[in-house]
Design a protein around this nucleic acid. Structure first.
Length: 485
DNA sequence: AGGGAAATAT
DNA sequence: AATATTTCCC
């Protein structure tokens, strides 16, 4: 997918471009990303953070330095400090996550499952919602943001002090080619999302992340599936702040129910995205989301109805003719009490023959009561993607002396963490460094900034360097010997 | 602007 | 393969 090979035949290329006082590094690594490479990268980051003169220490590296400093001051820090470190390691994680994606080619991520959406009926009660309002694609901002094509709004979450642009230029040691595909670009800009999504790449079912701080609330309407409505939120609320791409909406049964209800209420004529959206009163949901869902909904209707209609007509046409198969439905309520099948029929059509009969535009009958609940299809009821994805640092790493991070993430490593982490199939990670490895490597790089910079990677050939330079429009070649960060 | 559907992405 | 998002056209 986002292979670098497309741009350069060589295994990798590395270029160091010096402009004025700052040295920008761009390093292209071949997949898979090895532990050594990763460590190398981070050593460079730390190294630069430490060695750069204060005057030119980029904003983006300051937090790194601070982290290191604070770590070196030993883990006697207070809570505040810890949370800072915690946050920093999250940055690290995020960065690495991104890299994961870039280097793995594994693109199967579970749905993030609507963390940001909140139904009109409060699922949560408290202040977390502040973040919601701030960061979610709210009605006002959401649509805006929907139109904004800005890709450069990258990591505003990394550090409040530095602009996204700054960060990008500094921290992004590993990144895609400039001419990345839209997909690639996306991978760069949706860090937060990635963090959420990256958990379980193997199956598509997501697992609650111990890493992302979130609340899980049992839906009052949920049945035995006990699907979780996660209303996950980062404690560091500014992180997600409105500069991100839309977060994927997970149409949970509840949400879908709300949707169907609105549609039913409006009737076939009025059921247009904006109205539906209005009726649904779901915070953060955008018209686009609704339109999309509506599209799908209609499609299924079309697909299902004619079939059922035909069947029905075949059965009845001889005896008495009924124009529309607004048929007498079997006692739906029975469905309510029935144990659910392990697999949720999508749109309810494959479950019972009538399950999909929530007639489009058949107001008056509350089909959605059942269909909306049964519509969902998550293979494992207990594992509904309500769980947020878990990015890096999924497990309480073995306590590394001098590296207190794992203790600094109470919210990330809460009791739930235990439950969820072990459910993550290892196989998902076989294509890139295990997260523990990443964790370890980053730790090492940060915790031992004094270690000499590894020469590490194979030096680029002069040709490739020159080519890269010219490709980027750099004509004046920096003097030799200045190739350190 | 916004609805709808096709094209894409995940 | 299914679902969600993005893009495009009207």
């Amino acid at each position: 997918m986002n292979d670098l090979e497309g741009n350069t035949p060589c295994d990798f290329k590395q270029s160091l471009l010096e402009h004025h006082d700052e040295v920008h590094s761009v390093e292209f690594l071949r997949k898979p990303l090895s532990e050594d490479k990763l460590r190398n990268i981070w050593q460079h980051v730390v190294h630069k953070a430490f060695n750069a003169r204060a005057s030119i220490l980029s904003e983006s590296l300051k937090p790194v330095k601070e982290s290191v400093v604070s770590m070196l001051q030993l883990q006697t820090d207070d809570e505040q400090h810890e949370s800072r470190v915690s946050r920093d390691i999250e940055k690290v994680s995020r960065f690495v996550d991104n890299d994961h994606e870039l280097s793995s080619g594994n693109d199967k991520y579970p749905a993030p499952s609507t963390p940001q959406l909140r139904q009109g009926t409060r699922l949560l009660d408290d202040g977390d919602c502040q973040e919601q309002t701030n960061c979610s694609t709210g009605k006002e901002s959401g649509e805006h943001e929907g139109e904004s094509k800005s890709v450069e709004t990258t990591c505003g979450n990394l550090n409040a002090e530095s602009t996204p642009q700054q960060r990008k230029s500094e921290i992004t040691l590993v990144r895609e080619e400039v001419e990345s595909t839209p997909q690639q670009r996306k991978s760069e800009i949706t860090l937060v999302k990635e963090e959420v999504d990256i958990v379980d790449a193997s199956k598509g079912e997501s697992v609650a992340s111990p890493h992302t701080q979130k609340r899980k609330v049992l839906s009052n309407t949920d049945r035995n599936t006990k699907a979780l409505i996660k209303v996950g939120v980062h404690s560091d609320s500014c992180e997600i702040r409105g500069n991100q791409k839309k977060i994927k909406v997970d149409w949970t049964p509840e949400l879908h129910k709300t949707f169907v209800k609105a549609v039913e209420q409006l009737g076939i004529d009025q059921a247009i995205p904006s109205r539906i959206l209005e009726l649904m009163k779901v915070e953060g949901l955008t018209r686009h989301n609704v339109a999309s869902h509506l599209q799908k909904y209609r499609m299924h209707k079309r697909q299902i109805l004619p079939k059922e209609e035909r069947k029905w007509l075949n059965l009845r046409e001889r005896s008495y003719c009924v124009k529309r198969p607004i048929m007498a439905f079997p006692p739906y309520h029975s469905n309510h009490t029935l144990p659910l099948p392990p697999v949720y029929p999508m749109w309810g059509q494959s479950g019972s023959p009538t399950a999909g009969m929530q007639i489009w535009g058949s107001p008056g009958y509350p089909f959605w009561h059942t269909t909306a609940e049964n519509w969902h299809w998550k293979p494992f009821p207990g594992m509904h993607a309500d769980a947020w994805g878990c990015p890096v640092l999924p497990l309480p790493p073995p306590q590394t002396p001098g590296f207190p991070y794992s203790q600094n993430m109470p919210s990330l490593l809460n009791a739930d963490a235990v439950d969820h982490t072990f459910t993550m199939p290892q196989s998902s990670f076989e294509h890139y460094p295990a997260e523990e490895v990443v964790d370890k490597v980053v730790k090492e790089a940060i915790s031992k900034p004094w270690l000499p910079l590894p020469l590490g990677l194979k030096p680029p050939s002069p040709d490739s360097v020159l080519a890269e330079l010219s490709r980027q429009g750099i004509s004046n070649i920096p003097p030799k010997g200045s190739n350190s960060c």
